[in-house]
């Protein structure tokens, strides 16, 4: 059953009759939503164990008040991503072991970045460097969270890809080495559940148990700004396919970006950690 929490009570009142059926349909189409990880409520400390792909033994005690930086958690005190529209040199890093995340180089620990996100290796984009420290985008709430991690023990790689979602024109463009390789008309969030603007990244590539409405779902490191939870999940925004082509070009989703089949095929080959710019 689809459940959701709308941040704005006025919206909750208005939308009770209009959006829940649509949400239910969307969730059913998205493969019944599968297993809902524990601890999906927004706020508080992210669960250990299963929620992050098993890198922590189930049942192990959570680190005291230090949340895991996953799509399920909220990181308090994380520095905001100040350059939300800036490109980088494409550096992405994978922690080979869980690493502490600090609010500044050598500062206060605000989270732990695990080695996996949703069962896939954690790859996050580096948006700033200072000495041996790297500031990376985090996949947690609040949107735009970033944090500093020590450069030691990181596997570094370069991605030539960036994705731009133009909400005004309802268009997604894929770039490789700053050259456009594809452009598609897409569906974006509706007026009451808009797709959140900002700089984020491809967090995972999922193959749902049910291939309809989309055989591949690409969760991003950002969340709906109006839905605290959605279908038992944490309100994660994703790129995914949609079987009905009539939606493309419309603002009808609950925050996700629905893309045509050939766009999904191209996007599913883009390395994790690649930046996604969502602009209004």
């Amino acid at each position: 059953m689809a459940t959701r929490i709308v941040r704005d009570p006025r919206r909750a009142g208005r939308s009770a009759g209009g959006l829940v059926p649509a949400a239910t349909a969307a969730l059913l189409l998205l493969g019944g939503c599968g297993t809902t990880p524990a601890g999906t409520a927004s706020g508080g400390t992210a669960p250990t164990g299963t929620a992050t792909g098993g890198q922590t033994a189930p049942g192990a005690p959570a680190p005291a008040r230090i949340p895991q930086a996953t799509t399920f958690g909220t990181v308090s005190g994380a520095p905001r991503d100040a350059s939300s529209d800036g490109a980088t040199d494409g550096l992405v890093v994978h922690p080979e072991r869980a690493v502490p995340v600090f609010d500044r180089p050598g500062g206060r620990p605000v989270a732990t970045l695990p080695t996996e996100q949703l069962g896939a290796p954690t790859w996050v984009p580096v948006v700033e460097s200072s000495g041996g420290w790297r500031r990376v985008l985090l996949p947690s709430r609040p949107n735009g969270s970033s944090g500093w991690i020590p450069g030691d023990g990181l596997r570094a790689a370069h991605t030539p890809y960036t994705v731009r979602v133009d909400l005004a024109h309802r268009r997604l463009t894929l770039f490789r080495s700053a050259k456009e390789t594809g452009r598609w008309t897409v569906a974006i969030g509706g007026a009451k559940t808009p797709t959140p603007p900002g700089r984020t990244f491809l967090m995972a590539t999922l193959a749902p148990a049910k291939r309809t409405p989309s055989p591949i779902v690409l969760p991003l490191g950002t969340h709906s700004a109006t839905l605290d939870t959605f279908g038992g999940g944490p309100g994660t925004v994703a790129l995914h396919g949609w079987p009905d082509a009539s939606v493309f070009g419309k603002a009808v989703t609950h925050g996700c970006v629905r893309v045509p089949e050939d766009a999904l095929r191209a996007l599913s080959r883009v390395p994790l950690g690649s930046l996604v710019f969502i602009t209004g």
């Binding site: 790689a157 590539t205 309100g235 994660t236 994703a238 995914h240 883009v270």
Partner: peptide, 26 residues
């Protein structure tokens, strides 16, 4: 003090889809 020319990082790997469901904002 630190200096020198950093080796270029390797190409980021293409992702391998993980069989998993996550409720997203459809």
């Amino acid at each position: 003090a630190t200096c020198g020319r950093a080796a270029a990082p390797p190409k980021a790997p293409a992702p391998t889809p993980v069989k998993r469901d996550l409720p997203v904002t459809g």
